[in-house]
């Protein structure tokens, strides 16, 4: 053992820290909500590319003057790429119409339509429901799996940790009003998978320690498990965050928010797998008896 850090001693601080983050997330989510993307709200999105930079204000006032409703205009990745969103209903030739309006603003600045997307309101609603359902389903299935593979208290602990991760990631997206679209939802599900992965590695060690460290109390056992797996937890999180940074910086604008959700989620998930799950197990008063009789487990564990 290189060094041992008494994680359990600071678990009350961790509880406070998590509590504060959760509270902030819930407040932000209930006050300003999520900046839902086109996938969920429905509407129209157009991406155009100008030859040279064009002031965003000019574009949006031109579009409003032309009678388009709820127009938001923003640059997308570079100054010459413009993304427009409006609550305009679908029309086959909307793209060309908007192009004409925009070309009139500055005839000398050539522009091309890169992409246009139209999502109906019904579709958005459907996707929203499906997305929420998927998240709940993932949590539910995971809970059952962990309960079957480990023990009920472990499953409560790990699912609580997952809730914690998802809620705080959502909180970050709400606080900074980052766009929440289908890919971000996918990222959240991946965070669930990833964070659970971490939690399970720690849980595996806790279970093993309960068997091998016969004379230690629960806090000691958890400390030992966290310390023994810390090297691995940090290393894996580090490699994952490295590749996510690569995605964030060179992956392009379309998956920027996706990479962002994963990065936030994995940072929080790493913290939670160290603290939240184990703290909750302490709170749930996990004892050696919970994991005994281990005879059946023993067999499975010894499998090469």
């Amino acid at each position: 053992m290189k060094f041992t850090f008494d994680f359990m001693k600071y678990r009350h601080f961790a509880l406070l820290f998590s509590g504060a983050l959760l509270l902030a997330s819930i407040i932000s989510l209930s006050v300003q909500g999520l900046n839902l993307g086109l996938d969920f709200t429905g509407g129209t999105l157009l991406e155009v590319q100008y030859e040279k930079a064009q002031p965003v204000e000019q574009i949006s006032s031109a579009l409003e003057a032309a009678g388009y409703k709820d127009v938001t205009v923003q640059t997308f990745g570079s100054e010459t790429d413009i993304l427009m969103r409006m609550s305009e209903a679908f029309r086959a030739d909307l793209g060309n119409e908007v192009l004409q309006v925009l070309q009139q603003v500055d005839a000398s600045n050539q522009l091309t339509l890169m992409r246009s997307e139209f999502v109906g309101a019904n579709v958005g609603e459907e996707l929203r429901d499906q997305g929420g359902l998927a998240l709940l389903m993932a949590l539910g299935v995971v809970m059952i799996y962990v309960a079957a593979r480990f023990q009920f208290k472990f499953s409560v602990g790990s699912v609580a940790a997952l809730f914690h991760d998802v809620l705080i990631t959502l909180g970050v997206f709400s606080l900074f009003q980052l766009e929440f679209d289908l890919t971000v939802l996918a990222a959240l599900l991946a965070v669930i998978g990833y964070s659970l992965n971490d939690t399970i590695v720690v849980a595996d060690r806790i279970r093993e320690n309960f068997r091998t460290m016969r004379h230690s109390d629960a806090a000691e056992i958890m400390n030992n498990a966290i310390n023994k797996t810390l090297d691995r937890t940090l290393m894996t999180s580090f490699t994952t965050i490295l590749v996510l940074l690569a995605l964030l910086f060179v992956g392009g604008e379309l998956i920027h928010n996706f990479a962002m959700a994963l990065t936030v989620g994995i940072v929080i998930g790493t913290y939670s797998s160290i603290y939240v799950a184990a703290t909750l197990l302490m709170a749930l008063n996990l004892t050696r008896e919970d994991l005994i009789p281990p005879e059946i487990e023993e067999e499975i564990d010894d499998r090469p």
């Binding site: 499906q130 997305g131 993932a138 799996y145 599900l189 659970l196 590695v201």
Partner: peptide, 15 residues
């Protein structure tokens, strides 16, 4: 660890 991630990936695929 891999099985749990796989479960989540399958749910993601389904919905």
């Amino acid at each position: 660890a891999n099985l749990t991630t796989l479960i989540v990936a399958v749910i993601l695929f389904a919905v």
